[in-house]
């Protein structure tokens, strides 16, 4: 496996997010810029990636309004979403699953042999992931006017 720099991981994360937003959501996308972990984001979709040499946790954070827009777009419109908060969380979790899957594909191409966890969603402010002895890449995007941060906390070769 040859992923050994933050630049590589940042590029993989950016390509994975862009690919899914463009193909599955069809929303206008600006960015990425370097993110700082905005504590005002109120919902996070997360998925874990684990392999012999790479372990990581992907977090996609946005506001409640941003999560609602993403879920409604996936479903084909606000009227399809209704008022079910579980569907909003499910949509954000599915986005994390899609982006995590794309990251897995990139890593597997260089022998990553990565397993993907089931997605989960956290609600509430200040859910910025932090894991000791790990690298972190955070990218900030504007998705159809809504701020979204994608973060990957990871270790390579047990580092």
């Amino acid at each position: 496996m040859t992923v050994d720099t933050a630049v590589d991981v940042g590029t993989i994360l950016a390509e994975a997010f862009r690919e899914n937003i463009e193909m599955m959501f069809g929303l206008p996308l600006e960015g990425p810029k370097e993110g700082s972990g905005d504590e005002h984001m109120t919902m996070s979709g997360m998925v874990g990636l684990g392999g012999p040499e790479f372990r990581g946790l992907l977090q996609i954070a946005c506001t409640d309004q941003g999560a609602r827009k993403l879920a409604a777009t996936l479903l084909g419109g606000e009227e399809m979403l209704g008022d079910d908060p579980a569907m909003i969380a499910d949509g954000l979790g599915e986005l994390a699953n899609l982006v995590g899957g794309a990251i897995k594909r990139h890593l597997d191409e260089s022998g990553g042999n990565i397993e993907l966890s089931l997605p989960s969603v956290l609600e509430g402010e200040g859910n910025l992931l932090g894991v000791s002895n790990s690298e972190r890449v955070t990218l900030r995007w504007i998705v159809d006017g809504e701020e979204v941060e994608t973060s990957l906390v990871y270790t390579v070769n047990g580092s």
């Binding site: 193909m23 899609l98 899957g101 794309a102 897995k104 594909r105």
Partner: peptide, 26 residues
């Protein structure tokens, strides 16, 4: 599925699947 590696495809075919479509899709 988001799974797309050759090994995964073969595993699915061996189990009896007829095809494979990778997410994201149009």
């Amino acid at each position: 599925t988001t799974e797309a590696g050759n090994e995964r495809v073969q595993q699915a075919l061996d189990a009896g699947a007829n095809g494979f479509v990778t997410k994201p899709f149009t």
